[in-house]
């Protein structure tokens, strides 16, 4: 793959990709072959920010590294499922306020939406909205639903939701415009934990229906 490298200050490069699949493939390829001095990779819907410590990894060297990995990566290799050994199970009570209407929009019953959502193999594509929030995608979920016309001023922590092609879980109470289909008591965000975000980019996720 190719893709522009855009300037982003003295300690980062912004890599532009043509699709989310390219983002996922390049993110995994870069993460599998890190350079000393790499601070972090911040994926988003069409970009990856490559943040470096320029004293240990000069921007020119980072650029060469990204170019080389891009050249050896194809988006066909995009893995929307993430590494098998890194799977989070999120137990969901599917009783969200928007469940029936969202199912109706997709032409399904609520039971059918629950069955498909909990059968799909998800992967955290990127984060960004709040600490611990992940945008989840799945090859088993080629469906899209619009955001709510009027966002809620208060969405409770643990709300499981859909918007666009993504699913997500609100790690804490916040405003939000996603469609609520259920709730979980999973510990999504815990700064005292070595791995503070349950839904960290790259992780595989399955939702399990509970009653």
């Amino acid at each position: 793959m190719t893709g522009r490298l855009l300037p982003s200050g003295e300690a980062a490069l912004l890599v532009e990709c043509d699709s989310l699949d390219e983002v996922l493939a390049l993110h995994d390829a870069l993460a599998a072959d890190p350079r000393p001095g790499l601070v972090e990779l911040v994926p988003a819907a069409r970009t990856i920010l490559v943040a470096v410590d320029p004293e240990r990894l000069p921007l020119e060297s980072a650029e060469t590294w990204v170019r080389r990995v891009q050249g050896a990566t194809t988006s066909a290799g995009a893995d929307r499922r993430g590494p098998v050994d890194d799977e989070a199970i999120v137990r969901v009570m599917y009783d969200g306020d928007d469940l029936d209407e969202t199912a109706a929009r997709l032409g399904w019953s609520a039971e059918s939406l629950v069955a498909r959502h909990s059968a799909a193999r998800w992967r955290v594509a990127f984060g960004g909205f709040a600490p611990g929030f992940g945008y989840l995608v799945s090859d088993d979920w080629p469906f899209e639903v619009p955001r709510l016309d009027a966002p809620r001023t208060r969405v409770p922590a643990g709300a499981v939701a859909l918007a666009g092609a993504f699913s997500g879980v609100y790690p804490r109470e916040s405003p939000g415009g996603w469609r609520l289909i259920g709730r979980t008591d999973a510990d999504l965000w815990n700064p005292d934990r070595a791995d503070p975000a349950l839904l960290a980019p790259g992780r595989r996720v399955r939702f399990e229906a509970v009653r």
Binding site: V39, E40, L41, A51, G127, G128, P131, G132, A197, P201
Partner: peptide, 9 residues
């Protein structure tokens, strides 16, 4: 706390 932007921090 650098290096945590990918987790939304």
């Amino acid at each position: 706390r650098p290096g945590l932007a990918h987790l939304g921090v």
